[in-house]
Simulated assay, not measured.
Amino acid sequence: MKVLTVNLGRPTPSAHSDAADRLTGIGKQPADGPVRVADPGPKGTGGSGLSGDAVCDLRHHGGTDQAVYAYAREELDAWEKVLGRPLANGAFGENLTTSGLVVSHARIGERWRIGDELVLEVTSGRIPCRTFAGHMGESGWVKRFTREAATGAYLRVIRPGTISSGDPVEVVHRPGHDITAAMEFRATTTERTLLPGLLAAGDALHGETLRRARAYAADADTA
Rank of each mutant, 00 (worst) to 15 (best):
G62C: 09
W112T: 00
D53R: 00
R22P: 02
V35Q: 02
T5E: 12
L76K: 03
D221E: 15
F145Q: 01
L198G: 06
T222P: 00
C56S: 06
T131R: 04
M183K: 14
A213C: 10
A217Q: 14
V119F: 04
T190M: 10
P11E: 01
L155G: 04
A181Y: 06
A149E: 11
F185P: 00
A201D: 00
T188A: 13
T45F: 12
A19D: 07
C129V: 08
R159G: 03
G137T: 13
R10G: 04
S17A: 15
R59H: 11
T146G: 13
T45K: 14
P175G: 07
G63S: 09
N7Y: 03
A153C: 14
H16V: 00
F185H: 09
H61N: 07
G44Q: 05
R111C: 13
L8Y: 09
L118V: 06
M183L: 15
A31E: 06
G25D: 05
R113Y: 10
G134N: 06
Y216P: 08
L87Y: 05
G62D: 05
H135C: 05
V68D: 00
Y154P: 00
A218E: 15
D77L: 14
Q66K: 15
G27Q: 13
T98H: 05
R130K: 13
G166V: 06
R159L: 04
G46V: 11
T24R: 07
V103D: 06
I114W: 02
E148M: 13
Y69D: 01
V103P: 02
P168N: 07
E80Q: 15
I108M: 10
R10A: 15
G140A: 08
T98Y: 10
G41W: 03
T193G: 13
T123W: 10
A88T: 14
A150P: 00
G125L: 03
S51H: 13
S165Y: 09
L76M: 14
S124K: 07
T209Y: 05
T209E: 05
A149P: 08
P40Y: 07
G27Y: 15
V169S: 10
G33N: 08
A67R: 01
V119G: 06
T98N: 07
G176V: 03
Y154S: 04
A153M: 11
G161C: 07
L23G: 09
A91C: 11
L199M: 06
H173T: 01
G44N: 10
T97Y: 11
